[in-house]
Every structure is written in structure tokens, then in C-alpha cells.
Amino acid sequence: MILFTAPVPNINQRLELLYLLIALVLLALALVGGIGWIFETLIKKYGDQVDAETWKIYETRTVNTPKEFAKIAFKKSHRQAFKDYFWALLTIGLMLGILFGYMTLMNDPTLIADLTNYETRGFNTIFPIFDWANIPTSNFFGLNIISDWPTLLNVPRFVPEATISYVIFLLTLFGGLLLTRATLALIGRTLRIQNKRNQIFMKNLDDVAKKL
């Protein structure tokens, strides 16, 4: 609020604000980098499933060409993907079953419209809701940037009528996480197979030289 009441900021204040803005941007970038690193690590971890499933086939020379290796590795990967997606889709199916079952049995067709409502019986009643659309802004160096917190529209509270919305929200969240996990695992396995299919059958003279 000081920013609104104060007269035109002097050069030092402007510089401080600029440094603060730069620091915030760098912090946001570091956060995005951290999230990306987590996803990258997960993909690598899930890719290791291929090693556990195919090492015996390779070690015993049951397959002798990259094509044969990729064929059996993809078959195993698809079988694993089926198992992963099965649980994810079962959770989402359960959520839809509960939603439409409740609406039919209780004769309550407006529930689907109220699911995200924070004023009546949506799951948003347990979250703080800010008025991001009307966030206070000020003009700095010709740029219209955020200068204060937005107004709080909803104080988190438990509403007993919204219990069904909470259950549906939790099931959706869990189903979404399982679906993301299944997709990341599929990406990891596919990349691992594509990377290793040629490498493991490669005749490398450096390795021969090490043995001599």
C-alpha cells in the first residue's frame, strides 16, 4: 500500500524494485527448473524397469539383434502400461460412477454445476480463493505490474453438504496422479528401449582393448 501513497519513487527505490523483480523472476525460474528436474528423475527411474525385465533375455543371448530386442522389450512395456493405466482408469471410472450415481439416486442434477463452486457446496470451499482477475497493479518503468495481494474471496471452511464434492475431488486428483505416473513410466521405458536397442549390440573396440 505504501507504493500507492508514496510520491514518485526516487532512483534508489526504483533500483531496489528492479532488483526485487529480477530476484523474483530468477526464483520462479529456479522453481520451474526444480519441477522439471523432478520429472526428469522420475522418467529415468521408470526407464530402469526395462533393465529389470530384459537383462536375462540379453544375457542369455535369446535375442541377437536390436530389432528382436526392441520387439520383446516393447511387448513387455505395453503389458506394464496396461497394468498402470488400468488402475488409473479404474479410479477415474469410480469417480464418474459415484458422481453420476449420486446425481441419479438423489435426483440432484445441479451437483455437476456446483462441483467447483466456493460459495455453496463445491470442493473449492476448503481452499482459499483469491480474486486474481482484479489484482492491484501499478505502473513501473512503463510496465503495468502486480503491486499487492489480491482480495480474499473465500476463507477455507468445511461444508458438510459439500462432502460428495470433496470425495469426487480426491478421486479425480488420485486418478490424475496415477495417469501422470503411468504416462511418465511409458515415456521412460520407451526412451530407454530406443537408447539401448543399438548400444547393447554395438561392437566397441575400446571394450576389447580394455580386456587385452
Binding site: 503389458r79 493405466y85 515415456i187 520407451t190
Partner: peptide, 20 residues
């Protein structure tokens, strides 16, 4: 890329289901 893999995964699920 994530959307492509998600679609691929769902197609794999349908394919393996029918085969099973």
C-alpha cells in the same frame, strides 16, 4: 509430447485389453 504419449498409452491399453 506428454499428450502424444498419453494418447499412445490409452491406445496401448485398448489394444492390450482387446488382445487379452
Amino acid at each position: 509430447a506428454f499428450a502424444i504419449f498419453l494418447t499412445y498409452g490409452l491406445l496401448v491399453f485398448i489394444g492390450v485389453s482387446l488382445k487379452s
